[in-house]
């Protein structure tokens, strides 16, 4: 009986948390379309999320592109003529899958944590309550700029990550394995289709939304001082990462079902 009660409590807690998150999301979305819109705050968040994440995303992308070419070369050695597909697989892998997911996970670690810590600290030091007493809606002032900036900044980052990743593959293929540079680039360009890139950008926009949402949600509901803010930060990164991987599958299934 105690076991059933425990399971019941877990299920109820899960449903309650899901409901709170759904309400928070709807509330935040509804404020995205109602004035006032704080353009300056959106731009500042865009710089924080997009510009300052460039080094870490770029560095990750180039190594992913390089290791992808390396692995494909050793793997495709087993297949006759397989090596010629390296350029195609690298560009397909980067644009459709690795670019969005790697950039999403890196930004979840960097920005999701930062958002949760900042909003969480504002919560536990009464700054969010202070916003309300100064006739300012916390959703509009704190949540909406981060959500919109996340949705716009992550696709921009992924575009850069795609280019850098493909360049990483190019470097390994040409300098390490002696591929003809012109032929490699020609293969890449001929094989790449616009919907490969667009599907990656759609995914990354959703990932950007999820990262900002989870950062804001966990920060907004944090309590209990420094420990609460720490817990909110951890939860923001973990939940955003899990959601990114979950939605990666769902979106891949939807976008490439045909």
């Amino acid at each position: 009986m105690a076991f059933v009660a425990r399971v019941g409590r877990v299920v109820l807690a899960f449903l309650s948390a899901s409901g709170r998150l759904a309400l928070f999301t709807l509330n935040a979305l509804s404020h995205c379309f109602r004035p006032p819109i704080y353009v300056n705050l959106i731009l500042r968040q865009f710089v924080d999320i997009g510009y300052y994440s460039l080094p870490v995303v770029g560095l990750t992308a180039i190594f992913i592109g390089m290791v992808l070419a390396l692995q494909l070369h050793t793997g495709f050695n087993r297949i006759t003529g397989g090596e010629s597909a390296i350029a195609q697989v690298v560009v397909l892998g980067m644009t459709r899958e690795l670019g969005p997911v790697i950039a999403g996970l890196m930004v979840a670690g960097r920005i999701g944590a930062a958002i949760a810590a900042e909003v969480g600290t504002m919560r536990v030091t009464d700054q969010i309550d202070a916003l309300s007493t100064l006739s300012t809606n916390p959703y509009k002032y704190l949540v909406v700029p981060r959500l919109l900036a996340g949705v716009v900044a992550l696709p921009a980052l992924v575009l850069v990550a795609d280019c850098i990743g493909v360049f990483g593959g190019f470097l390994v293929a040409t300098y390490k394995f002696g591929f003809n540079p012109v032929a490699y680039l020609q293969n890449t360009a001929d094989f790449l289709r616009s919907d490969d890139v667009i599907s990656g950008l759609i995914k990354s926009a959703v990932f950007g939304f999820l990262i900002s949402l989870m950062g804001c949600y966990t920060g907004y509901h944090s309590k209990g001082g420094a420990q609460g803010v720490g817990a909110a930060t951890t939860y923001a990164v973990v939940s955003a990462s899990v959601l990114i991987l979950t939605f990666d599958y769902i979106l891949s299934a939807l976008l490439f079902s045909s």
């Binding site: 504002m122 030091t125 202070a130 007493t133 100064l134 006739s135 809606n137």
Partner: peptide, 19 residues
């Protein structure tokens, strides 16, 4: 509520200044 808040001012315990 936001309009009503213009009637209010509040000093918080920890001042709650925006860092």
């Amino acid at each position: 509520r936001e309009r009503l808040m213009r009637k209010f001012g509040m000093l918080f315990q920890g001042a709650a200044l925006f860092d």
